[in-house]
Nucleic acid binder design. Structure first.
Lengths: 137, 137
DNA sequence: TTATAACCTATAAGTTTACTAGGAATAAAA
DNA sequence: TTTTATTCCTAGTAAACTTATAGGTTATAA
């Protein structure tokens, strides 16, 4: 029951982009050095965020990435679902043909649906801006 | 971000034990047939529940398992944590030496702690009895 | 004594995770 | 126009994890 590095890194990358936004595209190389995440692995994560419209990418010299919206307009849930996929705790809940033949008599299905809902509510209740402004004691 | 079969099966096994409890030990073979879970795999899951004191096991002829408490005395969280391990969504949260050297400056740690808490609260808010009495529409 | 059942340990196939690698496309700057 | 810096795309891969199988040992009621 773990969030993978894809989701965790994506969150840190988005925070980094928010913190260092001065209007100029930020290359992954910079983020890689600050965050200690390998460039090549980040290159695999970023297209997910680009395709979702969460960042704008600029190729070529002086290229890099910029957030497309204000940090307050992203929920953490948006970012996690885009990179991790669905946060459903069991495959049965997804549309995909993972349905169980015991579905009708399943005593646990509603419980799992509730957990899924609870997780989604929580992750959608925090914005990227709130994380950026997070103070550490 | 998925619950594994260990946790899901354990829950179904506990429900099955509750539903068929008539004072006599229930052998895994019966549960296996009803639930469509292989006997050998269940044999690996049960000792976790036995050691946790959640079921009493009886070896030998006419042996099997019985719940040690009333279904209302188990939360789903108890059962899942016993079989799945901690429900922490990232390893950083656990005591184990998974701590990150960026811990002090981490903007996301509190968020993950909150998710963990939210998950634990939810799974501890449902009892085995409630699942047994679950009606399906 | 036999049958039945839990218990224990090892192994193995399949899947996922977390990368690594190499090159193609793009675009600013020299 | 050439160089340099960057994203993008696809493939490969080692390690870990999941989901079992398999075989044998121990315990106990009939």
């Amino acid at each position: 029951m773990k969030i993978s590095t894809k989701g965790r890194y994506a969150l840190r990358i988005m925070i980094d982009l928010a913190q260092h936004d001065e209007g100029e595209a930020i290359p992954l190389k910079e983020i890689s050095e600050r965050q200690g995440i390998t460039l090549k692995y980040m290159e695999q994560i970023m297209p997910l965020l680009t395709r979702a419209g969460y960042v704008r990418s600029f190729r070529g010299n002086n290229g890099g990435y910029l957030l497309s919206k204000s940090p307050s307009d992203y929920t953490v849930g948006d970012i996690l679902r885009t990179t991790e996929g669905s946060l459903a705790p069991i495959a049965c809940l997804e549309d995909t043909p993972n349905r169980c033949e015991r579905r009708e008599e399943c005593k646990t299905l509603k419980f799992w649906e509730g957990l899924w809902q609870t997780i989604n509510d929580y992750v959608d209740g925090t914005t990227l801006e709130q994380l950026v402004n997070q103070k550490n004691e």
